[in-house]
């Protein structure tokens, strides 16, 4: 069974990899040169390709959903203004995710200091322990997913983001470490703890 699952996971990863290659086929040297030259159409293409990914990162990272649109716009302006600093040897997606991650982190830190901007932790809006899920609903896959995603979103920022990046695009440990500016060993530890936490919570709630 283990071998079969492993083969399936590898196959899924390969499919994901091919998808990324197809998506990144234009992220070649010429494309980066065009971006660096200030080519508007190249930037539009970059934006079209990555807008949902950056939007998802921001959406999963900050609690105040009213700020997501502003943050995404700020991040793309930052990418546009700093594209000349991008080293072609690096991965463009990793570089952009790092900008998005750091920008959100900076915003969260500032918000913590400003009571008017304080982000509301998801636990308080979605208290899973007090509102036990309906047993019938649990049979539905959608309901299980909803609870799982809510649990992920209620985790501390670092654990949440390691988990999100890991499943987001099958980003490697090395790239996650680069995006978040933490050692690879810490990435593995966070991922392990996050998964254990999820498993325990899901079991406690009777979801699994």
């Amino acid at each position: 069974m283990l071998t079969f699952v492993k083969k399936f996971v590898i196959l899924e990863t390969k499919v994901e990899f091919v998808r990324l290659i197809i998506m990144n086929k234009d992220i070649d040297k010429d494309f980066v040169i065009r971006l660096k030259s200030g080519d508007k159409r190249a930037f539009e293409k970059l934006f079209t390709d990555y807008k949902n990914m950056i939007y998802t990162i921001v959406n999963r990272m900050v609690y105040n959903k009213n700020k997501v649109d502003d943050l995404v716009a700020d991040i793309f302006v930052k990418i546009y203004r700093n594209i000349h600093r991008f080293d072609e040897r690096a991965k463009l997606s990793t570089w952009m995710y790092r900008i998005a991650y750091n920008h959100c982190l900076d915003r969260i830190r500032k918000a913590k200091r400003d009571p008017l901007e304080a982000y509301e932790p998801l636990d308080s809006i979605f208290d899973l322990s007090s509102n036990g899920p309906d047993a019938e609903k649990l049979l539905l896959k959608e309901e299980r997913e909803r609870i799982l995603y809510a649990l992920v979103d209620s985790m501390p920022e670092r654990y949440r983001m390691v988990l999100n990046f890991y499943y987001f695009e099958e980003i490697s440990y090395n790239d996650i470490s680069e995006i978040m500016g933490i050692p690879m060993g810490t990435v593995k530890t966070y991922l392990f703890r996050a998964k254990e936490y999820l498993r325990e919570k899901m079991k406690k709630l009777g979801v699994l």
Partner: peptide, 10 residues
């Protein structure tokens, strides 16, 4: 479930 979590639409 984690792997198949859909992206948010901008």
């Amino acid at each position: 479930m984690l792997r198949n979590r859909p992206l948010s639409e901008a």
